[in-house]
Design a protein around this nucleic acid. Structure first.
Lengths: 324, 324
DNA sequence: CTGTTAGCGCGTTCAG
DNA sequence: CTGAACGCGCTAACAG
């Protein structure tokens, strides 16, 4: 942060007051076009640039948004961030991203840091299932995405995916493709996996197939046991289909499947990736509409910033089924 | 940006002056431990949080870094960003990311916006081959990554990959694997692809194989023609190996290759992806050490922020070869 | 149409 | 050890 030239210097240079310079630079109608132009020219010559810090502190608005997510290495969040950047760009906002690694304490810290930066609003995919967030003074306009916060107080908005419906569609499509016995490897995090599991159960209960709870297994946070679970499902439990609760689990399943001479089974999962198309493996994928999620979340946040007291709004977006 | 409680309110509450409060909160030794503790307690009770804006404007330091890259959808940049976040977290910095979509004008705009935000430093993978950046007042400490800036004035640092060496290693390994005729699909962007092409030529010129320039083709910016180029290389020009200048090109090649009944050839490329491991296709990949790039860049930037006038420093990091 | 004055929230002299 | 006063760079209120 080097010392810059300020409106004060422009003022003395132009022989006017700082107020006039400020007005001229902000294209206020309350200044003669002649002097306005002259001042703007001097500003250009001197290579002047506003100090947004000073400006923000004065107008009480930073045009900055905080985005709190678990990690940026999965395509789901990456795509959302990309589209949020796009929205931000178009609306003259900037975005600060904070990772939490699915850790509640980190999340708290991240949010605090962002609030100290005086962000105008927050978009958060909370890792905090049981919302220690309640402690947080929720004075900052916030919209939650991807995961349902439990008991946050104050007004806020939520954008969620139709997980139950999506999972059910995956199941019926897999059955349609010939699968008879479908296993489920669950993700340890958040509310989404619960909903997806529920969709799996719902869809199966509407068939004649027995609902076998032994076919539902849980991955660890680091996915270290997914390979084992996959083997168990295919060999011991004789599954001919497996649903992965998310992209990362799918990756680890594939790892095991292509590792040795496994019988070809059919896979189901959420979240698309450009690499899946070239995978040469039968898969049924429920794509989450990342661009839409970002757009809806952004719009809701804009409205809430404008009117922080408007009623809470919960939106659900639909998945799209793709077969590879 | 809601109205918060300030040190002034703490001052009146504690019956002291704002100066004392400021000192107490910053753990200054110039205040009695007793009152210090009392003030800190009151601050906690009131849920006080510093206004980093005001603080930054006063101490002339924002603890914010700007990161300017083309996009965040490719794993190379995603991984770098992830590691930069990690470094930032450990050093109490925050990061603002700006996308450029490989567009020089967007890059200028992004950098200006970041400078107005008074970022302490900049990390940029420039899209601007011929450096209109020269116009930019380079008063902000900057380190360039991935691409070599041409004629930027002022002091700065650079972190680059050994692209020539990496490409040469890819070629020799592919030859070793049995390839006889290796094509090259080049990326339209930046200095990296030039270096990689050079490595390809160098390695081939050290063999008895003829150097055939018809085997070197150029992709468009949107990769739309990569499928065609792939077909041309395999069918018309009878290649049994293709090197993709980057990850995205590789993806589009695979798309074509798995689309129909192509003869199995061997592929080479830069940048790893977790999905490549499960691809079941013979590939030779030169991994760029993203974590190292991020770490080195961050460290260089820290040093340059501390001493903006230190001599320019150019670092090269090595690729690691992986075979799938 | 323009200049003067007054803060925004904070850290830091300079006096006590 | 503490308080009063000042200023960071900018915009807004109030006068002229």
């Amino acid at each position: 942060m080097h010392s810059q030239i300020t409106i004060k210097e422009i003022a003395t240079e132009a022989g006017v007051s700082v107020a006039t310079v400020s007005r001229a630079l902000n294209d206020s109608p309350r200044v003669t076009p002649a002097t306005k132009q002259r001042i703007q020219q001097i500003a250009n010559q001197l290579g002047y640039r506003v100090n947004d810090l000073a400006r923000s502190i004065r107008v009480k608005k930073t045009f900055t948004l905080g985005v709190v997510i678990s990690n940026i290495l999965t395509s789901f969040f990456t795509e959302i961030i990309d589209q949020l950047e796009e929205q931000a760009l178009q609306n003259h906002y900037q975005i600060i991203i904070a990772r939490t690694n699915e850790d509640a304490a980190s999340e708290q810290q991240a949010i605090s840091a962002l609030q100290q930066r005086m962000v105008d609003g927050l978009i958060v995919a909370t890792a905090d299932v049981n919302n220690i967030l309640t402690n947080l003074d929720s004075t900052t306009p916030t919209v939650f995405i991807d995961r349902q916060p439990q008991e946050v107080q104050g007004n806020f908005d939520v954008v969620l995916t139709e997980n139950t419906e999506g999972a059910a569609e995956i199941v019926t499509t897999m059955l349609h493709q010939g699968a008879q016995r479908i296993g489920f490897i669950n993700s340890p995090v958040s509310t989404t996996s619960t909903e997806r599991l529920q969709g799996y159960r719902q869809a199966l209960s509407q068939t004649e197939l027995p609902l076998d709870d032994r076919l539902v297994l849980a991955s660890t946070v680091d996915y270290a046991n997914v390979a084992d679970l996959t083997g168990k499902l295919v060999y011991n439990l004789r599954c001919d289909g497996i649903i992965a609760a998310d992209n990362q689990i799918l990756l680890h399943i594939l790892h095991r499947l292509t590792d040795r001479d496994f019988p070809q089974i059919i896979l189901g999962s959420f979240d698309d990736s450009p690499w899946l198309q070239v995978m040469r493996y039968p898969m049924v994928i429920a794509k989450q509409p990342t661009a839409q999620i970002a757009k809806v979340a952004f719009d809701l946040l804009m409205k809430r910033i404008q009117d922080p007291n408007r009623a809470t709004n919960i939106k659900r977006v639909k998945t799209t089924l793709v077969r590879y």
